[in-house]
């Protein structure tokens, strides 16, 4: 019988611990597919960050290092400098990449570290139970903004792709989402390109995936996707913010 659907080789054959409706699973699969299609699993080293996705070290079949909170891109820098032939990627959430790890993120980017960064932006801290994230929307209710995020006291959300696109070291900064099949296909293409850029030695590539957190948003999986489309996408427009490849025309 012809196999019409199977797990990518780079994805371990164990069940995810992620909540129903969480998009981590989809993005994990897209990363694994990219690794498979580019044939780089044997050279790949993934950096797991602190947050819900910390257990990604169990889910990917390539070598993995688990980093302290926020430090994934510094750890990735160490691996890449030690083994330039390795394909090094980080998989980080918004708290990790855009709050505690902002410094490491900005400096890995501006150094043009030849690494691939997968950034899950779901506007909330998942692992610790739903606190305000640096990307939580104005007015968004979280455990630590029970009256809604008041920008006067809690500040504004950070748009990382826009910010990083100003840095010379960045080869690719693109925001995607996985709310429907079309967007999943676009996300897949972007993630694969971010890995291809590393193979081609182009420098720092970041793919921000606007994602859901039904559990901590207090919504059903379906309602969470709708909330993402109606609230997150207007604040975090999808698109390519920087692209140094020929295809991008040095955008």
């Amino acid at each position: 019988m012809a196999v019409v659907f199977q797990k990518p080789h780079a994805l371990a054959d164990i069940p995810f611990h992620y909540c129903p409706g969480c998009t981590h699973g989809i993005v994990h699969r897209l990363v694994a597919e990219a690794i498979d299609e580019l044939g780089v699993e044997g050279n790949a080293v993934g950096i797991a960050s602190v947050g819900c996705s910390v257990f990604s070290y169990n889910y990917f079949n390539c070598d993995m290092i688990q980093a302290p909170h926020g430090r994934a891109q510094a750890v990735a820098t160490g691996v890449k400098r030690a083994h330039p032939e390795n394909i090094v990627f980080t998989y980080q959430g918004d708290g990790d990449l855009a709050a505690i790890g902002t410094c490491e993120t900005v400096h890995a980017a501006t150094r043009g570290e030849n690494i691939t960064v997968i950034f899950i932006n779901n506007a909330i801290y998942g692992m610790t139970g739903g606190q305000m994230a640096p990307t939580s929307l104005p007015g968004q209710i979280t455990q630590t903004t029970p009256y809604g995020r008041d920008v006067k006291t809690a500040g504004y959300p950070i748009r990382m792709c826009e910010m990083l696109s100003t840095l010379d070291g960045v080869a690719l900064a693109q925001r995607v989402t996985v709310d429907n099949v079309k967007h999943v296909n676009e996300a897949k293409k972007a993630i694969k390109k971010a890995f291809q850029n590393q193979i081609d030695g182009l420098g720092y590539s970041i793919i921000e995936v606007v994602s859901t957190c039904p559990t901590n948003w207090g919504l059903s999986p379906k309602a969470a996707v709708e909330w993402l489309e109606n609230n997150m996408l207007p604040y975090y427009p999808l698109g390519v913010y920087k692209d140094k490849t020929a295809e991008g025309g040095d955008k």
């Binding site: 080293v45 950096i47 070598d63 290092i65 980093a67 302290p68 430090r71 510094a74 750890v75 990735a76 820098t77 160490g78 691996v79 890449k80 400098r81 030690a82 083994h83 390795n86 410094c103 490491e104 900005v106 400096h107």
Partner: peptide, 26 residues
């Protein structure tokens, strides 16, 4: 070899974690 002036002490020790974790003397 690699000499890298990191953005912070914190980044530097984590670069060591990465490099040493991938098997080199760091």
């Amino acid at each position: 070899g690699t000499f890298l002036q990191a953005e912070s002490e914190i980044a530097a020790i984590n670069m060591v974690l990465g490099a040493a974790g991938s098997g080199v003397r760091a």
